[in-house]
């Protein structure tokens, strides 16, 4: 029973990783692809770790550390890359509904 739950977590986590790969290839511009990247980094990894914890039933502290470190560092990388992307004009303006940063972007 517990193993079944662990397998479910692992498969859903792997599916999220695959959907991130599909989104990376399909999405039109840089910022859209960033959204795909955060998926396996947050929920995908959490699910894999949950599956791991359910199977091992030990080393829970190390897994909690992995989860906390990942949750703390992933947004930093995402923000830095996203900001660099916006500033170097890697956004498809025609796909944006509205851009409320455009008027502010010329500021130093």
């Amino acid at each position: 029973m517990i193993d079944a739950l662990a397998y479910f977590c692992l498969i859903v986590g792997a599916l999220l990783s695959l959907s991130a790969g599909v989104a990376l290839v399909r999405f039109p511009d840089l910022l859209s692809r960033m959204h795909a990247a955060t998926k396996p980094q947050a929920l995908g990894l959490l699910l894999i770790l949950a599956g791991c914890a359910l199977r091992l039933r030990d080393h829970l502290g190390v897994m909690a550390l992995v989860a906390v470190f990942q949750m703390a560092t992933a947004p930093v990388a995402a923000h830095m890359v996203g900001r660099a992307g916006y500033r170097s004009g890697r956004v498809r303006q025609d796909l944006l509904i509205t851009d409320e940063l455009a008027s502010e972007a010329d500021r130093p």
């Binding site: 692992l10 986590g13 792997a14 990783s17 991130a20 790969g21 990376l24 795909a36 990247a37 396996p40 980094q41 995908g44 990894l45 894999i48 770790l49 599956g51 791991c52 990388a77 890359v81």
Partner: peptide, 14 residues
């Protein structure tokens, strides 16, 4: 590369 790294981490965990 970030996604690839996340997938590698998932593979190690699995």
């Amino acid at each position: 590369m970030d996604v690839l790294l996340a997938i590698v981490m998932a593979a190690i965990g699995a």
